[in-house]
């Protein structure tokens, strides 16, 4: 079964989010652990800056948790996931690189939880992040090129989020189960419409998750998708309605939460960092304040590369879902 049930209930013992200037000016600005106004973060390149966001998030989360982790599970969007591995060069802890495009935060959480469930390790960090400037360079045009963004475009979040999980330490919050995504491709070829490309994968994961866990949308205080944006959110709602599930009022998209309309981001935020900083800021803070008791966090990814899209391939999507809930024992 593709839904993983974690009997050990790995506890969330620390979380940390670090974001750039634009994200700090958005509606969730007050929820992040640290704000870095300099897009270069004191480094010479944007790639170096992205690495430093990773290092800051990992070290921040470890400090909050107060325990030395056994393994760090990390992933990002850049070719050969260099931000994660180069950041780990400085962190010096054992490292497993994961890639799920923008679904990486949920994938790293699921991988960490599975390692913990097996009992071979006791503490792990799950981390993901992205940087607007590095993503633009890899997937689109130079920053200073004077073109117009299509109305379906999304804005890559600059930031990184890290979560520390443990089976040894006590905490009220735990990762209890999760569903690994299938690669779903509905033939969307427009690389500027990622939401449309990812929505069918998101619908597939949600439906399998609800069936496997015998739950329905109203069983969760909130359901979050990673970065579907406006079109993707609408498509996901309609795809699920077709299958008899009504997502209702308690469904949110991190990409739509993180910026407001005045920030010229068109359909909303995107990138690994989008769901990572929302989880390790807004969502976990709500848990701490007692507003959430059980949520479904589903990060969504578009598994394309510039090569595949230039060769005329459509964009396959994936979505990984994690259940986070308050536990008593």
């Amino acid at each position: 079964m593709s839904t993983l049930i974690f009997k050990q209930k790995p506890r969330i013992i620390g979380w940390y989010s670090v974001v750039g200037k634009k994200e700090s000016e958005g509606p969730l600005g007050y929820t992040f652990s640290r704000i870095v106004k300099d897009e270069y973060f004191g480094e010479k390149t944007h790639e170096g800056s992205e690495r430093k966001f990773f290092i800051t998030a990992i070290q921040g989360a470890i400090q909050v948790a107060g325990v030395q982790p056994d393994i760090v599970f990390a992933g990002d969007l850049l070719n050969q996931i260099v931000s994660s591995s180069f950041a780990m060069r400085d962190i010096g802890l054992p490292y497993v690189g994961v890639y799920g495009a923008c679904s990486t935060m949920a994938l790293s959480l699921l991988t960490a939880a599975t390692f913990l469930e097996s009992g071979v390790i006791q503490t792990a960090v799950a981390v993901a992040g992205s940087h607007f400037a590095t993503a633009e360079r890899q997937y689109r045009t130079p920053l200073e090129f004077g073109n117009q963004r299509p109305p379906t475009a999304q804005w890559t979040v600059t930031g990184a989020g890290a979560t520390v999980l443990s089976t040894k330490q006590k905490s009220r919050f735990a990762v209890t189960c999760g569903t690994i995504g299938r690669v779903v491709d509905y033939g969307v070829k427009d690389v500027n419409n990622m939401g449309a490309a990812m929505a069918p994968a998101a619908a597939d994961t949600l439906m399998r998750h609800f069936k496997n866990t015998k739950t329905k949308p109203s069983d969760y205080d909130a359901i979050f998708s990673g970065d579907l944006g406006q079109i993707g959110e609408e498509a996901l709602r309609d795809l699920l309605k077709e299958q008899g599930y009504d997502l209702g009022e308690n469904y949110y998209d991190c990409g739509k939460l993180i910026y407001d309309a005045s920030q010229k981001v068109d359909m909303g935020g995107s990138g690994c960092g989008c769901s990572a900083v929302t989880l390790n800021g807004f969502i976990m803070n709500k848990f701490r304040n007692g507003e959430y008791h059980k949520i479904l966090f589903m990060a969504t990814g578009a598994l394309l590369s510039p090569t595949t899209s230039f060769q005329g391939e459509s964009t396959p999507g994936i979505a990984n879902a994690v259940v986070i809930e308050e536990v008593t024992e």
């Binding site: 299509p150 109305p151 379906t152 509905y186 033939g187 969307v188 419409n193 449309a196 069918p200 079109i231 609408e234 498509a235 309609d238 795809l239 077709e242």
Partner: peptide
Amino acid sequence: MNKQEYAEYIKKITPKSK
């Protein structure tokens, strides 16, 4: 929705350039 229906559906809900 199959792939073709989905493509038409997406076309319908996608905002146009002004």
